[in-house]
Design a protein around this nucleic acid. Sequence first.
DNA 1: CTAATGTCTCTAGCAACTATAGGTTCAAGG
DNA 2: CCTTGAACCTATAGTTGCTAGAGACATTAG
Lengths: 144, 144
Amino acid sequence: MLTIGKLGARAGVKVPTIRYYEQIGLLAQAERSSGNQRLYSHKAMERLAFIRHSRDLGFTLEAIRDLLSLSDNPDQSCAAADAIARAQLAEVESRLARLRVLKAELERMVAQCAGGRIADCRVIEVLGDHALCRSDHRLVEIET
Amino acid sequence: MLTIGKLGARAGVKVPTIRYYEQIGLLAQAERSSGNQRLYSHKAMERLAFIRHSRDLGFTLEAIRDLLSLSDNPDQSCAAADAIARAQLAEVESRLARLRVLKAELERMVAQCAGGRIADCRVIEVLGDHALCRSDHRLVEIET
DNA sequence: CTAATGTCTCTAGCAACTATAGGTTCAAGG
DNA sequence: CCTTGAACCTATAGTTGCTAGAGACATTAG
């Protein structure tokens, strides 16, 4: 059995984060030692590694909660797990698209800054007037 | 003069968000009507548009605070504004790089799922075992 | 045995909003 | 002129995913 510190070191998760996961019910309440310290089995470590890995891949804790409950029922269809992963992929793709536009805009802003005074600076100008942007990186429509 | 609702509609910012910006001092306290309702000038709208646009481009409120104080003092050098934009660009580039790795990993995961039972599900399996991943996306920070 | 480290609980804080409750003001229809 | 309903007001609490701190108890190395 592992103490919480060793578990954290092994799974790459900070100790308060493990306690937080237990608090929100993502991890079951850990066994306790005679001195009331948490003790973890190898199985608990696998579960934590699963969570850690999913977080690395950008899944929300809510999605991970669903994925965990799926993996606890191995006889169900995996369509639900597949759907969660696909949704995450779509989310990542949309973020990528938006960031690419943003990067182009920032590069343009930086390239055009001639190093003069603020009054001439395109950074301020571009940020103050959306019409000066080449592309529409806005996420929400403006109502007039 | 615009009421807060019209200002929000025009600038594409929700009403509580505008009040929040005032509360944290990003916007000055608005003038009030005889009935104590906030009233905004065209100038206030430009400032809000500047904030909105900067948020769209991924600047934090702290960076925006700096940019605003720069644009309020137009006779300074624009080196500071340029530095903020450059830092933002570097941040965006690193986020892009990380998201590209995630996307590849998610695509691989989803593509391998044969659609059977959870017990055979590649998605669950990969999430549980980082060694099945092609890239070490774990070394990068989680912010996406 | 003692000192250092690890662990415990509890509370509060972070960004950047968003939501709710309970009240006031304003503009338009009858 | 009056009423209705939308828009406004304040204040507080909730969101996500942790992180930090305080003060007390447990364990371990020397």
